[in-house]
Design a protein around this nucleic acid. Structure first.
Length: 337
DNA sequence: TCTGGGGTCCTAGGACCC
DNA sequence: TCTGGGGTCCTAGGACCC
């Protein structure tokens, strides 16, 4: 398994079309205006990261830490296109390519010299797209993905099963891809803090605490992952969503209704263009205090009619009893298989 | 650090039925 | 009718990822 991960992807795409930005701290996110609140960093260039700017940080904070940075709006179509370029390069090799988001892919290959293949991939991606990437190599997705962390930026690294515990064994479980902060806290309550302890943890205890599926999965993660094959079948979308955080809270309920109807029609148009039909529609609301609730309703029958989805979204919205000012309104549709 | 947007998967629990 | 067990469908919410 090779894991290919583009370096500072969004920032790199921006620098590619504006070469004068090379070497400068670049911060991509929101509408590019760091004075406006309620926006966050999508990607920071390495120059900006060097002074503490990172993904998820409010733009306002990033501007304070790095006033000399160039702030740019997030340009989704540009990143979609750049991502497609990179994936096409990967598919030009005799390998299986499993796309994993905008800027990552797992590559399944049969080769005696994976390092050589990794360097060829890196070289061709660079030649064709002028974007750089890191490549991790391993016997499982998790080993390859973990190796990429050591390869960044722009390198090649390999992590074998045999090396797993030497490298990861004493690290906190949250260093493992797929284990977040919450699970880290719950594992700590069971006395499991390191990757080595997770690998040795009692399976029944994990299952009792996390459920049969997740419990077993956690132990597998502690053991460097399983060797489930890389597949290149295009993933069929399960749903589509659109949400907006407003700079100023939406206080009038009629405005909330209009936003919900607009977003419902928007996402329905998008999925209908892909030949899909909508089975459920969900509405998400978030107040100023970050109190967030979602309600979902099933349509009487699958539909491709944006107005029908908008009407049903209105019915779901009406089930919310509290009508406080909202910082976020969102709509998600679930798609017929 | 006053906290985006777009996804996926899993679990719990209630309703309902036999 | 002081009351089992199993199954399915549905919604709410948690958790994680990029």
């Amino acid at each position: 398994v090779l894991h290919v991960d583009l370096d500072q992807f969004l920032a790199a795409v921006e620098v590619r079309r504006r070469p004068e930005l090379a070497g400068r701290p670049v911060v991509v996110g929101g509408d590019g205006n760091p004075k406006r609140p309620r926006q966050v960093v999508a990607t920071a260039s390495y120059e900006a990261r060097a002074v503490g700017v990172h993904s998820g940080m409010p733009l306002v904070t990033a501007a304070r830490k790095c006033p000399q940075a160039v702030f740019l709006p997030s340009d989704r179509p540009a990143y979609d296109a750049a991502s497609a370029e990179v994936m096409a390069v990967l598919r030009s090799f005799p390998v299986v390519v499993e796309v994993w988001g905008w800027d990552e892919a797992f590559v399944g290959a049969s080769t005696a010299d994976p390092e050589a293949l990794a360097h060829q991939i890196k070289q061709r991606v660079s030649d064709v797209t002028r974007l750089s990437c890191a490549v991790g190599i391993g016997e499982t997705r998790l080993l390859a993905k973990t190796a990429t962390g050591f390869a960044k930026p722009g390198g090649v690294a390999r992590l074998t099963r045999a090396e797993w515990f030497d490298v990861m064994g004493d690290r906190p479980v949250t260093d493992v891809w797929g284990i977040g902060r919450r699970t880290g806290v719950r594992l700590a309550e069971l006395g499991v803090e390191t990757v080595r302890q997770l690998a040795a943890a009692d399976l029944d205890q994990l299952r009792a605490a996390f459920g049969p599926s997740i419990g077993a999965h956690l132990k597998v993660l502690g053991l460097a992952g399983d060797d489930s094959p890389i597949v290149d079948e295009p993933r069929v979308a399960k749903g589509r969503s659109h949400e907006e955080t407003f700079e100023h809270d939406v206080t009038e309920w009629v405005d909330v209704e209009q936003h919900v109807a607009r977003m419902a029609r928007l996402v329905t148009h998008e999925v209908v263009a892909d030949g899909r039909r909508v089975t459920h529609v969900a509405v998400k609301l978030r107040t100023r205090t970050f109190y967030t609730r979602t309600k979902i309703g099933k349509l009487p029958e699958p539909t491709d009619d944006p107005d029908a989805v908008a009407r049903h979204a209105g019915v779901v919205l009406a089930r919310f009893e509290e009508r406080r000012p909202l910082r976020l309104i969102g709509v998600r549709v679930v798609l017929e298989a």
